Simulated assay, not measured.
Amino acid sequence: MNKRNLIAAVNDSDYIERLAEYIRHSSFGENWQLTAFTNAAALRGFIRSGYAIDLLAAQPAMLGELGDLPEDLTTAAFVDYYGQSKYEKELLQFQPLPQLLQAITSLYAAEGNQLPKPALRGKGPVVVTVYSASGGTGKTTLALQLARHADIAGLRSFYLNLEQWNASLPLSSDGSAGGDDFSKLLYAIQSDSDQGVSAVLAYRKRYPAYSLDAFVPCNNPDERLALGTDQAKKLIAAIAAAGNYGLIVVDLDSRMDAMHAAVFEESDAILWLTTPDIASFRKNELAISFADRKFGPEFKAQKPKFRFVQVGGALNDRTLTDGKQARMDAVLPFVEEWAGGEYLSGTGAMVPQYRGAVDALLRRLGIL
C-alpha cells in the first residue's frame, strides 16, 4: 500500500518528536509517512526539489516564508484557535493527537482524495456486524470503537445502529433535529431502490467527536421493528454504494429475527460477544440453536464468519450444545467507566488496553 506524504512544520522540536512517535506506533502510520521540519528554509528547499507532498501543515509564520506554493498542494495552518490565521484551512495544533490525525485525514478527504480501502472477496467496504444475545456485553461500545479507530486510521467508517432502542449517539452531531431522518430514508429505499444512495448521502451525519458517520437515532422505535430483510439488505447496499466508506459497522440488538439473519448474510465478519459468566454464554448458545432451527441452511452458512469475542476475564473456550467448541478469537478488557454509556471518553487504566485490543482485532480481520 502506497503511503501518503504528510509534511509538518513547526518551530518546536519537542512537539515534532511527540507527533512522530505517536504516528510511528499508531495505525495512522499505516497510511501516512511523516516528514517534519522546524526550519522554513529547509522546508522551502524540500518543496522546490519536487518531493511528493500530499498534505502540508505548518505554522502560519512558516507558511508565510515559503512564498508561492503549487496550486494543487493541500495546505493547512497550525493554529491555537480557528480564525487565527489568514489561511482558509486550519488545524488546531494543540489538541489530543488522535483528534489531530483525524482532522488531517478529514481535511485530506475533503479535497476529493481517498485513502486506500480494503476489500474482502473483491467487493467494496468491509461490513462488520457486532452482536450478542446477552445484554450488557458492550456491543455498542465495541461497534463505536471499531468505527472510530478505523476512521482515525484513515479508513472512513459508517456506524449503522439497528437496535430498537438506539441511544448510542446524540440526537444529531450539532444538536439539531433529525429524528425522523431514518424513517424518510427507509421510505425512499422501499419506494425506489435507485434512490438509496442519494437518500444515504442526504440523511447521513458526521459526528466529529466520535470520528464516524451515522444516521441520527430514530425517534420512532416501530420503524426498527418494521424493518424487513429486503430493506435491511438494501440499506447496507446503499451505504456501501455511496463510495465514501472502507468500513461499515452494524450494531444489532439482542433479539434474533429475520432481519438479523439478513444482516449476517450481508456481513463479512460477525463479532459475537459474550462474557465469562455462564448465563451470558448460555443465552448466546440458545440464540444459535434457535437460529439453526428457524433459518436453517442460510444461517448455518454464515457460521464461518463468526468471531467469538469475550469481554472481561481470561480466555475461556466453551463447548456448544452441538458438541462444537466455541473458540474465543479475542478478549477485550472490561472498562468500568464505559459501562455507564460513555463509550468513547475516559482515562481509566483499562482504556489504552481496550483500544489496543480493538486495533489488534481490526488487524486480525484484515481491515487495517
Rank of each mutant, 00 (worst) to 15 (best):
N316F: 12
Y343H: 07
V331H: 01
A339L: 04
K324L: 15
M350C: 03
L344E: 06
Q325H: 08
G341W: 05
Y343G: 07
P352C: 05
A349Y: 08
M350N: 03
E336S: 10
D329N: 10
M350S: 07
L315A: 15
G313Y: 05
D329R: 09
D322Q: 10
N316M: 14
D317P: 03
V331T: 07
G323H: 02
R318M: 05
K324W: 08
T321P: 04
M328W: 03
A326K: 01
Y354V: 05
R327Y: 06
L344A: 09
T347E: 14
R327D: 10
G340C: 00
Y343M: 10
T347C: 11
D317Q: 06
L344N: 05
Q353R: 07
G313V: 11
L315I: 13
A330Y: 04
T319G: 11
Y354A: 06
G340P: 00
A326M: 08
E337V: 07
M328C: 04
D329K: 09
T347L: 07
D317K: 04
W338H: 10
A326I: 06
R355S: 00
G313R: 08
D329C: 08
D322N: 15
R318A: 08
M328F: 09
S345L: 12
R355A: 00
D329E: 11
G341H: 12
T319E: 14
W338E: 06
R318K: 12
D329G: 13
L344K: 02
A326N: 06
L344Y: 07
A314E: 15
A330L: 03
D317G: 02
Y354C: 04
Y343P: 03
K324N: 14
W338F: 08
G346W: 00
V335Q: 02
E337H: 01
P352N: 05
G323Q: 01
E342G: 13
R327G: 03
E337W: 00
V335L: 06
E342F: 15
G346S: 07
A339N: 10
R318P: 00
K324E: 13
A314T: 15
F334L: 12
G341P: 09
L344T: 15
A349W: 05
D322T: 13
G340I: 01
G348A: 15
P333V: 04
D322P: 10
Y354L: 15
